[in-house]
Write a protein that binds this DNA or RNA. Structure first.
Lengths: 133, 133
DNA sequence: CTGCATGCAAAAACTTTGCACCGCC
DNA sequence: GGCGGTGCAAAGTTTTTGCATGCAG
């Protein structure tokens, strides 16, 4: 594999992601990095996000609705996706329990990782719903 | 919401899905249904798959790589996705354990459902890997 | 009849890629 | 200078949608 050289654009992408906890899409990253690098291209953003995800420096989240999102928080945790507004929120769940469940699975293949998404209504949308009644 | 009328095309899609356990993509459904309805359009396939998923009659699986897949098996179960060949395999895990974990999550929103994907190498690819060595 | 479902095609949404150029080591 | 990264644009992939027509209830 080719050597990896540092670049200002990639640094800026990491900086931006580390400043957010709301799991931005590639396009949101692009729009924001443009404030600093007006000439950066969407292709570069995608290339770097893919690279960083492969390196394990960020996490890619496929919500199943709309564009993929990216999370700088690589510690084991899970995601909640609001079915009303689409926002993605970190969940603190003890991964150990789920990992214990995995070890009990009878499966001939080799399980190397897992992701879990929880769906429902986020606190914001719950509040709005109650107000509307 | 509008009333739902039965259609031969939708019936055929359900029939096809119920005959498979390999979680076909919309395109695979399309190609196969065309044997029976040569004039069916991809749009109709997508419309019906979305509808059925909303009704809870099938399950949509966003693997994060390539097109979404659809599963006729709506009983609680999880999916294994092979990182080598992309195949999707049903996993028999006791959902109750995971649901117990969920109830212990401290979260102000309302969790209504969850999905989990497990990644790794499927039995087939493991075998090939061993043979190649 | 009424209006939902379909076929068709265009377009939208999202992501990847080829290529020439730029800049770091 | 060599090689990886970038910008730009084109193309690829997957999914949605507008509209006229067809068919179920």
């Amino acid at each position: 594999m080719p050597a990896i050289k540092r670049s200002k654009q990639r640094d800026a992408i990491i900086d931006f992601l580390s400043s957010r906890t709301d799991h931005p899409t590639a396009d949101i990253v692009y729009v924001n990095i443009r404030k600093q690098f007006p000439n950066i291209s969407l292709g570069t953003v995608y290339r770097n996000l893919s690279l960083l995800a492969q390196l394990g420096e960020i996490q890619k989240i496929s919500t199943g609705t709309g564009a993929d999102r990216f999370d700088w928080n690589t510690t084991p945790h899970y995601h909640f996706i609001c079915t009303d507004c689409g926002s993605v929120i970190d969940l603190e769940v003890d991964a150990l329990n789920i990992i214990k469940d995995i070890s009990s699975i009878s499966f001939d293949g080799q399980i190397e990782g897992h992701v879990a998404y929880f769906y429902g209504k986020c606190p914001e949308c719950l509040k709005k719903q109650r107000q509307a009644q």
